[in-house]
Design a protein around this nucleic acid. Structure first.
Length: 470
RNA sequence: GCCCCCAUCGUCUAGAGGCCUAGGACGCCAGGUUCUCAUCCUGGUAACACGGGUUCGAAUCCCGUUGGGGGUGCCA
């Protein structure tokens, strides 16, 4: 027997075993309702948020709804801070929700009522396992037949009745268990597509049985492979290097992280990797989601982030750039100056926090010197003399422009039978304190005559103040 | 233990029996551009876990092994 999933053919389990959920003839449509259901017991990490992103993308792609449910029933571990963390992460990444968030902790009575209903209909029973004295728990009775469902990313899955055991839905202390609450809320929220982590595949049989017992319509399921850490283990609450909040704090761009995370487990099928949000909404669908776990490669991500930085519209770039300067206590002289500085730096700042360090010398005379560079370029024999000679040549220039500066320097070098580089490097260090940076002559022009000449004159003190070792 | 899932360069991946002497990206190496760093351009390095099948033909299908992951009545 063959059935259709997307455009692919799949061998289906024998028709004899009841196939639950019916996604093979339920194409995803604009009526799709999916949700992100995090438990706020720690920081949101990239594995969590990637699940949220896929849910959001599917909803947007099909014109359906994307909802949020905070599963905060674990009162010991759920904190308001963690809830806020989830909200912040989603907001930062632009994961807009279409209805008010549901807080699971407010639905306890409904969950318990559902357990009563199952008890009444004979789908559940009470038992004190091993007479522990803890009281009776409510146990759900599995149907006792083979079950299967067609996972939207993993294909057809099935399980023998013998491997499907009864399970607790209400603890002996009277608290509902995850399975009950989760299904009860999904039913209440009319969720018809559940996209969640791979760690829930085995739970799906239980959930499906619950839907059946309750007579509720069955949703479709899609289980996403995990994102694993460098040890190849799924990210846990303990993996401190993968929190979404940290990416935000470190100055990475949300669009870059969004783009990168989507690519961890999905690809458009061609060679594109730099995809705008609009393109992703248009292209993304579950049928191209892979089924093997992925590792987050920070280096590759930083490359993508750099591409986003360079592609940023000028106005956005300027706003952020200015904010970074302000944070470091640097105030641009004027807007026109800022507009001339930015193009020089734009392609070499890889993430926002690097801004102040790389731009410092443009906005203040109190910048630090790279000792290695000073030693190599200014403490050389004759370096200071060259510098002063060059300063005179620069000072004599009627126009302090890049081309004029360039010409003056090369002329002087030629006169002295030296290489242009012998002058270029010392000037750079004297004027910027750094070994590398933007094109020297443009940099000098933008910096302006006064600053440049002043700093060149001070080079001698600078060298002395650094108290040369060796 | 039992059940389920997964397996292509170091990493993310393309691949739906012949288009694959396996393509792209990041990284790395070499070269180019340049005053440096960055950007950019060119070239190179590197993979179908293993063993059996099926087939004229397999990275692609089947079985097994190994490895990894998940689940397994009171975590979510």
């Amino acid at each position: 027997m063959l059935c259709i999933r997307g455009s692919r053919l799949w061998r289906c389990p024998s028709a004899r075993s009841r196939l639950l959920s019916a996604p093979m003839n339920t194409a995803l449509t604009s009526s799709v309702r999916c949700r992100f259901a995090p438990s706020p017991t720690g920081n949101v990490h990239i594995g969590n948020i990637r699940t949220a992103i896929y849910n959001w993308l599917v909803a947007r792609h099909h014109g359906g709804k994307f909802l949020l449910r905070i599963e905060d029933t674990d009162r010991e571990r759920s904190t308001p801070e963690a809830v806020q963390g989830v909200l912040n992460a989603m907001d930062w990444l632009g994961l807009t929700i279409d209805e008010e968030p549901v807080y699971q902790s407010t639905r306890r009575e409904a969950h318990l009522a559902m357990a009563e209903q199952l008890l009444a209909s004979g789908h559940a029973y009470k038992e004190d396992k091993g007479n522990t004295g803890r009281g009776e728990a409510v146990i759900f009775r599995m149907p006792g037949e083979d079950m299967g469902f067609d996972d939207l990313v993993k294909g057809p899955l099935r399980k023998a009745a013998a491997d499907l055991k009864d399970f607790v839905i209400v603890r002996s202390d009277g608290n509902p268990v995850f399975h009950l609450s989760n299904v009860a809320d999904d039913i209440a929220m009319n969720i018809n597509l559940v996209i969640r982590g791979d760690d829930h595949v085995e739970n799906t049989y239980r959930h499906l049985a619950l839907y059946q017992a309750l007579g509720a319509p069955l949703p479709s399921f899609a289980h996403l492979p995990m994102i694993v850490n460098h040890q190849g283990k799924p990210y846990s609450k303990r993996d401190g290097d993968a929190y979404v909040g940290d990416f935000q704090a470190k100055g990475y761009l949300p669009e870059a992280l969004f783009n990168f995370l989507v690519l961890l487990g999905w690809s458009p099928g061609d060679d594109r990797e730099f995809l705008s949000r609009e393109e992703l909404v248009a292209l993304f669908d579950l049928d191209r989601v892979g089924s093997n776990p992925a590792q987050f490669d920070l280096v590759k991500f930083e490359n993508l982030n750099g591409q986003y930085m360079r592609a940023l519209p000028d106005s956005d770039y300027k706003t952020q750039f200015t904010a970074c300067l302000a944070e470091a206590g640097l105030i641009p002289d004027d807007d026109a100056y800022l507009d001339r500085v930015i193009p020089l730096l734009k392609e070499r700042i890889k993430k926002w926090p690097d801004t102040a360090e790389q731009a410092h010398y443009f906005f203040s005379d109190h910048f630090s010197f790279d000792e290695k560079a000073v030693r190599k370029r200014l403490q050389r024999e004759g370096a200071l003399e060259n510098l002063l000679a060059l300063r005179e040549a620069f000072a004599a220039l009627p126009d302090f422009t890049a081309t004029a500066l360039d010409e003056a320097l090369r002329n002087l070098a030629e006169q002295q039978g030296a290489k242009p580089a012998d002058f270029i490097h010392p000037v750079r260090v004297a004027v910027t304190g750094q070994a590398g940076g933007p094109s020297l002559f443009e940099l000098l022009e933008v910096l302006g005559r006064d600053r440049v000449l002043d700093r060149m004159a001070k080079a001698k003190e600078t060298v002395a103040s650094l108290n040369p070792s060796e």
